[in-house]
Design a binder for these strands. Structure first.
Lengths: 237, 237
DNA sequence: CGAATAGTTGATGTATCTCAAGCAGGGTGG
DNA sequence: CCACCCTGCTTGAGATACATCAACTATTCG
């Protein structure tokens, strides 16, 4: 069940692509450690700040988390959005390089960094997860550096549609090509993730509505009514 | 630890200030593997393409390499610039997610991925290197998402000045505050790295010249004559 | 119900892109 | 050794996508 929810988060943000061996599912990631502690957070709680000591490793068990950086004048860039099973809090140096804040209520597993790094299996999990993260960051660099506002928003929306827009995309089930997307992010958070302003995000979404690509069931519940059409707008295909 | 010095940024692209510990230099990274092969490339050689099987791990020994992605319409984003001792070619999936191309002549050490992942020590090196890469990618996301053209170019130039603009920046040696930067990248490559056009990069550099921040000894040899001044323009301080 | 907050829409400004021309340096061949 | 070309870089003029500023509307929550 928990793994199904991976798909409803921002796909690619975490390690979800690595299919767990069913038998191992419960013992993958930080759960392998006997000394793992579980922590519960409310929506919009801060888990750590940039500059905090990076002496613990976190695994997102449930919920969604964003990592972001701030410039001294207040500009913000959300650099990653994490889905369940993502590891975070690892840092090259001794200090956290980002802030970590929950988007929704979230459960997190925490292990002492020293311990995490002493197990070969865990070390492998960590590398695997970091590699997936890097791929996501590469895609995001393309988005931020080279895509238009409409392409950014379309790409963002496509993240919520698992197994579409990927190589070997199955295409729509004939006659039905929609997907309900429960946004857990505010317009401001989306804008800061996409390197845009709140107004531009709003305008693009309104434009998509007018063009019949999406319907807003509520402000934070968008129904993508033409997944293929949106996918065409990502610039990636 | 030796690997804390890994700079997956630009420093090595012309700045060889990152000195490996002489005693460890030969036994760190992929050199730990007995079956590592060394390969030599000319400038602008392609090492692998996006979509190639990701079955080998590479370590840059000498030179500079860029990783980039292309959109179908030809837009390009350079996602990473690698300095000596960086590992690359690792991928979350089975395929390379970027193209890898040398910027200069380069020496690369290659190991079979399976082998690299079977050693605990190497696995540790790999994660450490991946974490450093992620930090660099985070910074780059801020640059691409939130910085102005001038801030991007200033940040780019500061990458070539080791130990400046970092927390605990020593400041200039009184009376002298310059640094020679031998660019190994064309304007087009810089533009594709910074998410700008060639013309904008050129204009910003010209502007910096007019303001006395840099002097072009040659087109590809810039002397930063006011490192502090440039640092102030990065937006990070 | 009403204030507070988040989102939308419009009018205007501007940073950067686009298109186009001119220039410089490096290499080649006459 | 110099003229020429080729490529990469610079500069200018104009277009445009997105940001900014400001008003308005919808939603949430006490």
């Amino acid at each position: 069940m928990a793994y199904q929810q991976v798909q409803s988060g921002l796909a690619g943000a975490g390690c979800h692509a690595v299919a767990p061996h069913p038998a191992e599912a419960a013992s993958v990631g930080l759960a392998r450690s006997t000394r793992a502690k579980t922590q519960r957070f409310e929506a919009h709680d801060v888990i750590f700040y940039e500059g905090d000591p990076a002496d613990r490793v976190y695994e997102l068990v449930e919920g969604a988390i964003m990592l972001y950086k701030l410039l001294p004048d207040g500009r913000r860039q959300v650099v990653e959005i994490l889905a369940p099973r993502a590891l975070f809090g690892l840092s090259g140096g001794k200090l956290q390089d980002t802030n970590a804040e929950t988007l929704t209520a979230a459960t997190v597993r925490v292990v002492d960094r020293r311990e995490a790094e002493s197990s070969f299996d865990l070390q492998c999990d960590i590398s695997r997860c970091l590699m997936a993260q890097i791929e996501t960051l590469h895609d995001h660099a393309v988005l931020l550096g080279r895509k238009s506002a409409a392409e950014r928003v379309a790409s963002f929306l496509m993240h919520f549609v698992p197994n579409r827009g990927v190589t070997g995309c199955a295409g729509p089930v004939p006659g039905r090509d929609d997907k309900l997307v429960p946004l857990t992010m505010t317009r401001q958070e989306i804008a800061d993730y996409l390197g845009l302003t709140i107004e531009t995000v709003s305008r693009v979404i309104s434009d998509f509505k007018r063009r019949g690509l999406i319907v807003a069931e509520k402000q934070d519940r968008l129904r993508l009514t033409d997944v293929c059409g949106i996918c065409q707008l990502t610039g990636t295909h």
